[in-house]
């Protein structure tokens, strides 16, 4: 009889070991001090800053390395929009390379709403998440106005400045202008 008890105990231990394989917790790490970074990693919690985030915003007025244009000086107002529309010009030459990357970026960041051809019939419009997205051809657009809208958004559209570098924004501008011309 004493052996039976031992067998039962062994079975209980075995089952509990198998049951510990829980998808909600990480597995055991060997020497965790080699696994876990000492510096704060991107997107991590950070006790140093008041908002608790490691990710910082660029200091106001600074220019990223390799940026094409100085810090954006037009204001997020109607007057700023009109001023950008009439005065701001693209620093990029029209080229195959720019258009190609513009197309790539447009497909990722714009086409969900504006549609592949800029007709305002992206998948989110078809699924009625967003409605009334205008066709580019129905609007008067300049390089400056497109760039301004990417920077600050317009109406129900939000700013896409954080997702695109300034060069990419200008490439998208170039591609949108091409979409507007193309039949």
């Amino acid at each position: 009889m004493k052996h039976l008890n031992q067998i039962v105990v062994a079975l209980v231990i075995l089952t509990s070991l198998i049951a510990c394989n829980d998808k909600r917790t990480r597995k055991v790490q060997y020497m965790p001090d080699m696994y876990v970074a000492v510096p704060y990693e991107a997107n991590s919690v950070n006790p140093v800053f008041a908002d608790g985030m490691t990710d910082r915003q660029p200091v106001a007025g600074t220019i990223a390395r390799g940026a094409l244009t100085p810090a954006y000086q037009f204001e997020d107002t109607n007057a700023g929009y009109e001023l950008a529309k009439s005065t701001l010009e693209s620093p990029l030459e029209t080229s195959e390379e720019n258009l190609e990357n513009g197309k790539k970026m447009y497909a990722i960041y714009c086409a969900v709403c504006h549609g592949k051809k800029g007709g305002g019939q992206g998948i989110l419009v078809k699924r009625e998440k967003f409605l009334g997205v205008p066709n580019y051809k129905d609007r008067t657009l300049t390089d400056g106005s497109i760039y301004h809208v990417i920077m600050f958004g317009k109406g129900a559209m939000g700013s896409h400045a954080s997702q695109l570098s300034d060069k990419e924004r200008w490439q998208v501008v170039q591609y949108v202008q091409q979409l507007k011309i193309n039949k």
């Binding site: 991107a42 998440k129 967003f130 559209m157 939000g158």
Partner: peptide
């Protein structure tokens, strides 16, 4: 969006969520 230029793919900041969820 940072996957294309950076070491980390990046967890989007909430402003990216709000691009759509202002409306939805």
């Amino acid at each position: 969006s940072s996957a294309k230029h950076s070491k980390t793919s990046g967890i989007p900041s909430a402003n990216v969520c709000m691009n759509c969820h202002k409306n939805i």
